[in-house]
Structures are given as C-alpha cells and as structure tokens.
Write a protein that binds this DNA or RNA. Structure first.
Length: 328
DNA sequence: CGCGAGCCATAAACTGGGTT
DNA sequence: AACCCAGTTTATGGCTCGCG
C-alpha cells in the first residue's frame, strides 16, 4: 500500500517543503493575488451585461481575455495545489486538470473517460493510469468515479468527477476559483486540446487535431504538459511569461525558478521543463547577463501565445513548421 | 577558491508474460 | 480480452572530481 508512493514521497520530500512554503496556500505570487482582487471585481460585472446568453465566439483558445486567463490560471493552480494533491505526482495532478476541463455542466460536472483515453491525454500508458494515477486520485479524495459497465459486465468507461471542483460548484459561491462556468470550462478544454490533446476523429468525421505536446510521452510527459499549460496561463498577450519575484537561485536563474514554482518542483526540474519545451520550439528563454555576470535579466516567451496574438515571431514559425505538430 | 562536466544512485515508466 | 505483476530500461537530479 505504501510501496511505491511511500518511497516516492520521501524522494521528493525535499521539495515538498519548498512546495508548501513558497507555492502552496494562496501563494503570494503576483498573478495569484491579482485573481483575488481586481479580476474578481471584473467578474462581478458579467451578470449585469449578460442579458440573453450571447453565443460564444470560440476563437483561438490561446487568445484569452485577461479576465479569462486569470480566472483559468487561478482554477488550475487551485486544483493542482489543492491540499489533497500535496505531494502527488504530476501525472495525477495533470489528470485532475484534464478531468476538470472535460467536466460537463449538463452531467453535473462529470465526464466519462477510459484509462486508455486519459492516458493519451496525460502521455502515459493506460496501465500506469489505471494502476497508479486513478488510485492515487481516489485515495486522496480528489476523484469520485463510477465504473460504467456494459450488459456483459465489461468495464466500458469511468464516470469521473473532480471532487474539489464539484464541491465548489455546489458550494453556492460562483466566485470560487474552482466554480468555473460552462463557458470557462469549454475554453479551458479548448486550451488544453490545443496544447496536448491526443487527437481523434469524431463519429461525424470532424477531426480534433493533436495538440502541440501530443507526441511527448513517457517520463516527464505529464510535467511538460502541466508546465506548458501553467506557463501559457501565466503569460501576457505578447507571450511574455510573468516571472516570479524575489531572490532566486542564481545558478538556475529566474525562468527556472518561475517554472519550478508554477509546478511546485525544484528549480532544477523547472529548468529541465523549460529546456524540453524550448527544444520543441514552444518557448524561448533569454538569459541576459550584465558584464559583471550579476543581475541577469531573463525573460521567457511562449511562442504559441505570441503567434496567436499576431506577434511576428520568425523563429516561432520556423519551429512550428519543423514538426512541432506531429500527430501520431 | 570557484565553477563546470561527468558519474552514479534512484525511481519513473515501459514491456512482456502469466492469470482470471 | 482485460487485468495484474515482475523485470528491465532509462531519464533524472545530486554528488564528486578535475580544471581554470
């Protein structure tokens, strides 16, 4: 019971402290705090202007309004840093995000999925989902699930609901960070589809293309996906990532520290994620140093976001052209 | 004395075989 | 056919040693 997870926990124990201290409860990060303040007030104004439901223009999900972006960032961060997921692996945390995004208001914030399908979303094999990820989520009371079975008794799917969001949706407070509206859920789903949907053909023949990280599988795949999502949601309309403030490990640099804090892992791991995403042409990291080598002024640009807003980024086009979108 | 490259222990994730 | 388990592979981060 405490076999693999117990070992793993102790292995990550060092970082758990860091996660708890810096990143955990309502972290003082600039983006997080702005959600509680200004944007919440903006959200209040929505019912006033919304008379008849305006049919939503679902444009490029990488072109989010500031309100939507902060709202989705707050939701994703709240979910992945939920106390119940403290110390959980990235596959489990990413799976929770995917299941939240796939929740349908019409079915009481539930969604039906198979381990195989969820595995394609997360970038892991079905066996890992079924034996590690789902049990971990259930054990932590993050995931409620019913197996749906065919008449023959075969398991045909898993009806899932993400408990923290389910509670928030029924808690009566529509401003709760996890009480996402129907539209917000759809936009979040569209966004993660763009980033790492496995890609599939619908029954009617329409195609949901594979996302940018669809072919990134195996070890670290969930970390890369979660990192990209969090960074996209933490960047402005020009694609510049909001870097963390304060002092950081100078050997790793501020971008690595930012990635690490977003993901709740060490700066070293954050640097790895940045390097892998950079290699895929999804972002660029400029680390400029002054002559003395101090005061390194760094910046990170999320190229898909920049492109979506029409910012001419030549390297980005080239990178995108050379096989970033590679459906399997 | 400070920094960087390479090495090593670890565990994450896959693979294949056996079982119900 | 799906599921479970054990073994194997391999990426990963910390540590040590060597160099400037």
């Amino acid at each position: 019971m405490f076999g693999p997870r117990g070992v793993r926990r102790s292995g990550r124990g060092r970082w758990a402290d860091e996660r708890r201290g810096r990143h955990r409860p309502h972290s003082p990060a600039p983006l997080g705090s702005s959600v509680g303040g200004a944007s919440r007030r903006r959200l209040w104004s929505v019912p006033a202007q919304a008379g008849p439901v305006v049919p939503l223009e679902l444009g490029n999900p990488l072109q989010l309004t500031e309100t939507m972006r902060t709202r989705l960032l707050a939701a994703v961060r709240a979910l992945v840093s939920d106390p119940a997921l403290d110390g959980a692996g990235d596959p489990a945390r990413l799976a929770a995000v995917v299941l939240m995004a796939k929740a349908k208001v019409a079915t009481n914030y539930r969604t039906t999925i198979t381990a195989k399908e969820l595995g394609r979303w997360v970038g892991l094999k079905p066996s890992r989902i079924a034996h590690q990820v789902l049990p971990e989520l259930r054990e932590r009371e993050v995931l409620g699930s019913n197996e749906t079975t065919s008449a023959a008794g075969r398991v045909t799917g898993l009806e899932c609901w993400v408990i923290p969001m389910y509670r928030a949706q029924h808690g009566g407070d529509r401003r709760h960070v996890l009480a996402l509206s129907r539209v917000e859920l759809i936009v979040l789903l569209k966004l993660i589809e763009t980033l790492f949907a496995p890609g599939w053909v619908h029954k009617d023949g329409s195609v949901t293309p594979a996302g940018m990280l669809a072919d990134r599988t195996g070890r670290g795949a969930a970390t890369d996906r979660l990192g990209l999502l969090l960074m996209v949601l933490s960047s402005n309309s020009k694609g510049w990532l909001q870097l963390c403030s304060g002092s950081v490990d100078t050997s790793r640099g501020r971008p690595a520290a930012t990635a690490g804090r977003l993901l709740g892992c060490s700066p070293a791991a954050g640097a790895k994620v940045l390097a892998r995403l950079q290699e895929r042409g999804l972002l660029t990291v400029d680390r400029r140093e002054t002559a003395s080598g101090l005061n390194a002024r760094s910046r990170v640009r999320l190229l898909p976001v920049a492109q979506a807003h029409g910012v001419p980024v030549r390297e980005a086009r080239e990178a995108a052209a050379c096989g970033v979108f590679r459906p399997r």
